[in-house]
Design a protein around this nucleic acid. Sequence first.
DNA 1: CAAGACTAAACTGTCGACAATCGACGATTA
DNA 2: TAATCGTCGATTGTCGACAGTTTAGTCTTG
Lengths: 246, 246
Amino acid sequence: MSLPVGLPAVADSDLVGQVARILTQAIVQGRLPPGSKVVEAGIARELGVSRAPVREAARLLEKQGLLVAKPRRGFFVRKLEIRNIDEIYDLRLCIERHASVLAARNLTTESRDALRRQIDVLHKTADLDDPARQVEEDYRFHRLIFEIADNRRLLRLFDDLAAELRMVIGLIGRLYDDPHEIARTHEPLLAAIEAGHPERITAHVDYHIGHAWREVGKLARELALPAGDAAEAPGGILIPTNGVTV
Amino acid sequence: MSLPVGLPAVADSDLVGQVARILTQAIVQGRLPPGSKVVEAGIARELGVSRAPVREAARLLEKQGLLVAKPRRGFFVRKLEIRNIDEIYDLRLCIERHASVLAARNLTTESRDALRRQIDVLHKTADLDDPARQVEEDYRFHRLIFEIADNRRLLRLFDDLAAELRMVIGLIGRLYDDPHEIARTHEPLLAAIEAGHPERITAHVDYHIGHAWREVGKLARELALPAGDAAEAPGGILIPTNGVTV
DNA sequence: CAAGACTAAACTGTCGACAATCGACGATTA
DNA sequence: TAATCGTCGATTGTCGACAGTTTAGTCTTG
């Protein structure tokens, strides 16, 4: 009768997922720089697979916003423009406020401890002089908040945004000169969440994210990234206005 | 030399996009009911294309949340669970507050008039006794707000959410008994946006969306949709914690 | 020397094919 | 009788191929 003995749960072949992860990594780490072309056959050969899974993975990344598809020309790594950065941070600010308030509402002793532990990790990591790791652990903290908020769509959205943000940060370089600063600024945020006052929470999120936004924006402008007000890519699948046939 | 004669913009071959739109329509209109299996070969045959574009389109819809992919089993229309509805409305409330405030900030006489005209359209549509059309025009109004907010990511997100919402509404049936009610409730919202007070705006959005949320939730519970707290689908592509090699 | 025409290579979009796997159904066994 | 096993059709995952288009490079021409 098959006792529910544990769970080896064999690894799915799932080439598409793997390719998507690998591509994401490559983009986020800057190995595929913004604007560069993603040649399907090249990726396929390099990974030892055929083009079909690569295309499907590329489509996913396109929907996620890391790639842009130009018909008959292929996929390109999305270019970083000031406008993109502003859009990303604007959206992030919007959802992180919300997630933080939700997290406060759902906060348990365990989840609170998890957040505290993560702040400790941030402090410890600060001594390592490993910017990539620092970014990673920072991401972990904020992701925790979204996990506690307990809305899977919100979490997915954050992950998608985070991938783009990593691209930005990777390109721009380290964010703070003092890595301990990064750790310290999380404490009042957590305090506000523990206190549970929505206004205080959003104020702290605004300060926290807004600071990063301004910093990144400043650096981006120094690097003279294009503004990018042009239409760029038509984007998502819009539901056309058709005479519904229900 | 090709004078830049604007705009026929021939329908790109772009099979993937077309298939995605068609599939979206079918799902939203309930022709592919929640939980049903999407057989690649079947769709392909029916549309007269091969499986490759169908798969790519399905992957897009998966990322969008309309489909769920079970490895080695195929794609299934996402089941409607109470939890999904709550997540969708929660996220929608979050972004629509934000978009409305942004829209107020960006409001011009033209965009204001566009919103007013759309309310007129809503009133006119109310006499037609065409629920599908009513939903369509309602969607238009809210989409306008996101367009005015002028953040492409926000807009795309709204479109994605809207597709899921249509599925919900299509399944649950008409939302209001009095279609004029739906039109009237937009007026104070627009008034608040014109006034430009963030607090008043969010309050009105909360009321407006919250009302729909409660209505839909009530109907969903009457239909005894499953709660769906189970893990369901792992979801987005997470960036694994790897030793970065920069 | 620069602008344009032409050619060849590279690449995308799409297709059909094949092996591996899943699910159902009936046979087998305790 | 109920549970397990084996078989078979249906379906997915993946691949290689081919036509049409884009791109890069070369050659021509004013």
